[in-house]
Design a protein around this nucleic acid. Structure first.
Lengths: 190, 190
DNA sequence: CCTATTCCGGTACGAATGTACCATAAAACA
DNA sequence: TGTTTTATGGTACATTCGTACCGGAATAGG
């Protein structure tokens, strides 16, 4: 199950990365034993050797995927050390953190909300999801502070809700532009 | 494909109702040919006879399920002809319309958001989803008017976003109470 | 009443899935 | 070096799935 040797740990990690990639590109349904193994360049049996079940692999992939995105969020924040202190910039930073940068694919936006839905039905994803939300909140507070618009926890919760609601509702548009929807609603709520 | 005889129409409708029930109880993944047929008390082949594909059946089920819920919403509104004119009542009416009455199961709440996610990946669900949203908006405006708190379209959009965001974020709680989350955020935003 | 079209339903096929098995290879330890 | 875990990977199994097939029943049109 959990690898002990360095090589084993490398293989295990390769599987998680492959699964995270599939998750990012095709959602939860795209993560299967065979697809993960092929993407990682490993035999099928490796997936069952390092993970008790597919659920365990998926959980690891969710965590890895989210943490990687969090890392990129902090990195972007560090790059923009000198940040314009207006609301428009704050809005963009919040959108970047919540649904990814404007350059990211549409799948990533969908995935954020698929995670909530899936976690609601598979309780064992709850702990990792709550932990990730805590870290995301920290990133958001950092971003807002850096843009000269610091907020309390309550206010942050409200802003997150506004963006998530606007974005999720925008997903069914004929020509979806969830980022624009989130931006518009956020600017109205600041 | 589409039934012509009265009996055929009845069977076709039975399939849609069965599919809608499965959708309500287990989400999109629960809707399969065999499950629908068994629930409707019809042979497996009936599902492929009346529907070109499973996607077509699912789309019909989504529409039926949502319209039934809309109907119940209007009915509840009609029953409460004399409605207390305070904000608390308005909030409860909005919650009833958006995520179903307090007595409804948790699955129905999850389903509302799963529909957005699924529609984002399956474009042919877009038209019906947008149509249903228009009707839901009408119900919401009616409810708010009846509670003595009429709103413009823009304001309604904001309120819907606030509730949806709060609810979807509440889905990952250890002891989820999405209705309470929506209520709290909505009261703060009125 | 006869024929032609529609309806019906049991069955089967091919693909994909998660997971178990097991013989071999490598490595850890004695 | 010998032995005992651990790692590896090819293969197979049991299910489940969407959908196609096709003989027979029902019904409609003449």
């Amino acid at each position: 199950m959990t690898a002990s040797t360095p090589k084993g740990e490398r293989r295990r990690h390769a599987l998680i990365e492959a699964a995270a990639g599939l998750l990012d590109e095709g959602g939860f349904d795209a993560v299967g034993h065979r697809a993960v193994a092929e993407r990682a360049g490993l035999p099928l049996a490796a997936t069952t050797y390092y993970f008790r079940s597919l659920d365990e692999l998926v959980a690891a992939a969710v965590e890895h995927h989210a943490r990687a995105e969090l890392g990129r969020g902090w990195a972007r924040l560090a790059e923009l050390a000198v940040q314009p202190q207006d609301d428009e910039s704050a809005v963009e930073l919040v959108l970047d953190a919540l649904i990814g940068p404007a350059t990211a694919g549409a799948e990533q936006v969908v995935l954020r909300y698929e995670r909530f839905v899936v976690a609601a039905r598979r309780p064992w994803l709850g702990p990792v999801m709550r932990e990730l939300r805590t870290e995301l909140d920290a990133l958001l507070m950092g971003a807002l502070s850096q843009a000269g618009h610091p907020v309390e926890a309550d206010e942050l919760e409200r802003l997150v809700a506004v963006v998530d609601g606007a974005v999720v509702n925008a997903l069914i548009e004929a020509a979806p532009d969830p980022r624009a929807a989130g931006r518009r609603m956020l600017l109205r709520s600041l």
